[in-house]
């Protein structure tokens, strides 16, 4: 599974909580959130656009930093 890194403009636990709940609803996704660095790492076989759109649901800006 490829590990992708996204930058998500999360400013507080409320935002990271929202991202956590959104990703929990997606099967076949393992993720880690670093709130201070505003980073989200996702291990999944799904394509990047799907992952990016999923993250954008929380209303925050999402940037793709590439695979790790």
């Amino acid at each position: 599974m490829t590990k992708h890194e996204f930058e998500v403009a999360m400013t507080c636990e409320g935002c990271s909580g929202a991202v956590t709940r959104i990703l929990n609803k997606v099967e076949g996704v393992k993720f880690e959130i670093d709130l201070p660095k505003k980073l989200v790492w996702i291990e999944s076989d799904k394509d990047v656009n799907f992952l990016k759109e999923t993250l954008e649901k929380c209303g925050k800006e999402v940037k793709y930093n590439g695979t790790k």
Partner: peptide, 15 residues
């Protein structure tokens, strides 16, 4: 439930 700051409020109101 789950909002803790003004920016959560803003993103909900916008979206």
């Amino acid at each position: 439930q789950g909002m803790t700051c003004g920016s959560c409020v803003q993103s909900i109101e916008q979206r």
